[in-house]
Design a binder for these strands. Structure first.
Lengths: 190, 190
DNA sequence: ATTTAAAAATAGACCGGTCATTATAGAAAA
DNA sequence: TTTTCTATAATGACCGGTCTATTTTTAAAT
């Protein structure tokens, strides 16, 4: 028997909607309706309401994102190829242009900017997420022999570039921007 | 004198708030309150309400952004230095970490992601804005002798990197990410 | 195994408040 | 006087959150 499949399902639907529309634009009623859950259950599993829901969504999305990045970074010893593999994975998630898979490619840009001046708790979780992502890149670069100071600025720049191409890809509903970045990646490592 | 200073003021306040909080999180009442305008005036100048306000905000912000980019790209014949000058300008706008100047550095990421799956009209305006920004970069690169195919992918990548770095800077309320990107810019042009 | 009491989960009505928008009137400017 | 602008009140829809009641599940006691 599913221990708390209702809770998981709620979190899943909320994750999709928050990353797609933002949490400000996503009402609890929409989450309830799309997940077929009554309001009582939501406040049973998430007593602190929407704020708790947002926080758990961001935290679990971060874990998923980090694991996903690590997998692709491990796919090749050469960091250039590994990063390109990761970008390739991201562009795959844009095959369905209108409903990109927000679970395997959580674009934190929306939630992190929504929270930046409004919800300090969420903002910090987003910031920590970005920091961890960059740490993953940094480690990979250093392992492959890059100087630590260069690895640091490159990790931040790569993270920024990927965030940016996701914003672009979502805005124009095309994976072309991702493919373009893919081609410029090698020059980062010269 | 007050030809339509009320209208301009309304647009100014709305611009600040929309870029800071997103348009979903910004109520008309907040705009009215912060601008000291009565509700009647808003619907007098913007008969189509919030949607018209958002559209005009994005359009005017885009114009401002494009003009600003052009100025900095013209600041030096060398594209590397010109881009670094622009990044320097951006990092200057983060001196007041809690209230960055959204007029001189409109971060479209928030509004463009908010609108992507919700307001097609706004989404298109954002997309066109990104396209024009990239055209500016492209022209600069080609003028300086870069091959057109390389200029194209580089323009997209640079745009993405700048978008991303603004997302990072806003999230962690620091201009450090911008400064880091500044250091990696030269490698783009090798 | 059956009964039973407690706990967990579901269900939805309800609340005060705020949302964008409209309506209506008065003031200012032309 | 006619147009433009200001000022509020009222509108209905929806917001997140609370509340109480009911059903389902769990576990203990017989």
């Amino acid at each position: 028997m599913k221990k708390s499949s209702t809770r998981d399902h709620l979190l899943e639907v909320a994750t999709r909607l928050f990353h797609l529309q933002g949490y400000q634009a996503t009402g609890l009623n929409q989450i309830l309706k799309e997940s077929g859950t009554p309001k009582g259950s939501l406040y049973h599993y998430f007593p602190d309401g929407k704020n708790q829901l947002v926080k758990e969504v961001v935290e679990s999305s971060s874990q998923r994102l980090l694991a996903n990045i690590q997998i692709h970074l491990n796919s090749d010893p050469n960091p250039t190829i590994a990063v390109q593999n990761y970008l390739n994975h991201l562009s795959e998630n844009f095959k369905n242009l209108d409903t990109p898979d927000m679970l395997n490619m959580p674009p934190f840009a929306l939630i992190s900017m929504e929270s930046a001046f409004e919800n300090e708790e969420i903002r910090v979780v987003c910031q920590e997420n970005y920091s961890k992502v960059q740490q993953h890149y940094y480690n990979k670069f250093v392992e492959s022999g890059m100087a630590t100071d260069k690895a640091k600025i490159l990790a931040v720049s790569l993270n920024a570039a990927i965030i940016g191409v996701l914003v672009l890809s979502i805005t124009e509903k095309s994976n072309e921007p991702i493919k373009m970045l893919q081609k410029t990646v090698p020059s980062f490592f010269l």
